[in-house]
């Protein structure tokens, strides 16, 4: 399956990466995808997809607090210092006036 330049730009937009058309074509993504097409020829009728090698079912645990009072520790790596001083993550505005 070949993807158009517009489709590739759409994927880059969906994963929130700014990239020029020129850079995108330099990445040779088409040649990678074209090579992946070889899998289409394999007959997989009635084969159950394998999404993980782990054989066990996902374990459950009681809904109890395991870590608490870790606000300052979590904020230590916050990229915006202005919010950090007030005990918050400061993020760009998401709503219009």
């Amino acid at each position: 399956m070949a993807f158009s330049k517009q489709q590739l730009q759409k994927f880059a937009h969906l994963i929130r990466i700014e990239i020029s058309d020129e850079k995108l074509s330099e990445m040779k993504i088409d040649s990678v995808i074209e090579w992946l097409d070889k899998l289409q020829k394999i007959d997989t009728t009635n084969v159950v997809p394998m999404l993980s090698p782990s054989a066990h079912s996902l374990p459950r645990r009681s809904d109890i607090v395991t870590e608490k009072n870790s606000r300052d520790s979590i904020l230590k790596n916050a990229p915006d210092d202005a919010g950090k001083a007030r005990g918050y993550f400061a993020v760009p505005k998401v709503m219009d006036e």
Binding site: M1, L36, L39, Q40, T44, V48, P49, M50, L51
Partner: peptide, 16 residues
């Protein structure tokens, strides 16, 4: 448009 053709097909080949 490609989830079945690529991702799920790869997962089936993985099973094989």
């Amino acid at each position: 448009e490609s989830y079945e053709v690529y991702f799920m097909q790869a997962a089936r080949v993985r099973r094989l």
